[in-house]
Design a protein around this nucleic acid. Structure first.
Length: 418
RNA sequence: GUGGCUAUAGCUCAGCAUGGCAGAGCACCAGAUUGUGGAUCUGGCUGUCGCGGGUUCAAAUCCCGCUAGCCACCCCA
């Protein structure tokens, strides 16, 4: 008989198996715990948003054009799987009335994001982010706060070999004049740039600074720097952000070529990279200030700052660093019975469950096989139930570590296990 | 979106150059051990050789297409 082809996971999507979840759980718990110690509260937003919300803030970037999962629902709505968390959180901040509450609203979110990208190491079409947003936060001190939060999280999960890169990109007051300076510098060089960059000279000159094509790279070193052309407010903010980081003892490297390509980003930008040993070039965390985002979404102008951390990459780095994760046993207690005692075995399990996690082995196989299986599960105790025991409502409780075994009445099992 | 490598048992892989019976280890099941785990030994089960087409007396092996995975580039709002 020809078998039907088994249906495999969708391209770029992966399962996190029980074995993986142990590590993931510690990383997620650390994120939530650290967020709460900084006064951030959890928010959950839908995985689906209107395509317009995503498109309005991503405009004509490749990312939105090519990497967005979009579809039409049965009601004819154009929807998209969220590719990042900030747009949805800012929307929820206004829709849920957090803009009427105490400012800033300090929020965190853990959840899946989706990008239709070609999969490779550390990059999946469904991936998970830890997202921090302080919305309504005008003070540059909050920029430093979210950076400190990010650093604390990474340290708590055991990533000590870290590089923090920091820059400012000005705001709507000072950036336009700086961009014009950049254009003036690059226009005579245009013929020597690669295709994309030739277009960027007029369209998006900031992006010329982080181009990685060898042909373009040499020119940026003599390009004018935004930090020499900040307005007074941006300059003061830049000093304050670094002042708080210095006081916190957080090391950073100033990278004048670290930029963002969209207009609503302002002032602080930062990225955390794993240290040399890991060899990865991709950021573990990327963040910054986005004072123009609320307006881009159609809401009243509202400042904000935050970051997104990639759980897939962070867990990978933690795993690669050899951190030991002690696997939790599937069950602390396994109940084994003679055939035909399923009802009684379930009764016994119920008594034990008051004190410990319990699994019952109902499989039709030898006692030897059941013992072997219980051992592999990591069970600390085995409860053996024979027909004679069942009659008298007792069972044999065996400690797997010591090998000791004793007869215990069903009603006393929980006490013996506690 | 571009390029390189790969796809054979539940898992990790050998076999492919030079076409000729489908293999190993692990895992699983069982026995040794008169139904009580870990160590050891013995035996056993498991395959549309990713999918589709072509060449050939004969294809896991050679050719073409597709799909998927890995890696890098690109991108990362």
């Amino acid at each position: 008989m020809p078998r039907t082809e088994p249906i495999k996971a969708v391209r770029g999507m992966r399962d996190l198996m029980p074995h993986d979840r142990a590590l993931w759980r510690t990383v997620e718990k650390a994120a939530a715990r650290v967020a709460r110690t900084f006064g951030y509260q959890e928010i959950v937003t839908p995985i689906l948003e209107h395509t317009d919300l995503i498109e309005r803030i991503g405009e004509e970037t490749d990312a939105v054009a090519k990497e967005l999962y979009r579809f039409e629902d049965r009601g004819g709505r154009n929807l998209a799987l969220r590719p990042e968390a900030t747009a949805g959180i800012v929307r929820a901040y206004f829709e849920g009335g957090l803009n009427q509450g105490p400012q800033p609203a300090r929020l965190f979110l853990l959840g899946p994001m989706f990008r239709y990208d070609r999969p490779q190491k550390g990059r999946y079409r469904q991936f998970f982010q830890f997202d921090i947003e302080a919305i309504g936060a005008a003070s540059p001190a909050v920029d430093a706060e979210v950076i400190e939060l990010a650093a604390t999280w990474l340290h708590e999960v055991g990533i000590s070999d870290l590089a923090l890169e920091l820059n400012t990109i000005g705001d709507s007051k000072c950036r336009p004049a700086y961009l014009e300076l950049l254009r003036q510098y690059y226009r005579p060089l245009k013929d020597e740039l690669h295709g994309d960059c030739q277009r960027r000279v007029e369209a998006n000159p900031l992006r010329l600074l982080d181009c990685k094509v060898p042909q373009c790279r040499p020119f940026k070193h003599k390009a004018p720097r935004i930090t020499d052309h900040l307005c007074d407010e941006c300059a003061a903010a830049w000093v304050l952000v670094r002042g708080v980081l210095d006081a916190a003892g957080i090391e950073y490297r100033l990278n004048p070529y670290l930029v963002r390509g969209l207009d609503y980003y302002t002032r602080t930008v930062f990225e955390f990279y794993p240290g040399g040993a890991s060899g990865a070039q991709d950021a573990l965390i990327a963040g910054g200030r986005y004072d123009g985002l609320a307006e881009a979404e159609g809401w009243p102008p509202t400042p904000g700052v935050g970051f997104a951390g990639g759980l897939d990459r962070v867990t990978e780095v933690v795993a690669a660093s050899g951190a030991e994760v002690i696997p939790e046993p599937a069950a602390e207690v396994v109940v084994l019975s003679e055939p035909g005692l399923e009802v009684e075995a379930a009764d016994v399990a119920r008594f034990c469950r008051a004190a410990r996690s319990v699994a019952v082995d109902y499989e039709p196989r030898s006692l030897r096989a059941k013992m072997r299986s219980a051992h592999k599960l990591g069970a600390r105790w085995v409860v053996l139930l024979g027909a004679a025991d069942a009659q008298r409502h007792v069972a044999q409780l065996k400690d797997m570590a010591s090998g000791e075994q004793a007869e215990v009445p069903w009603k006393e099992l929980a006490d013996s296990l506690a």
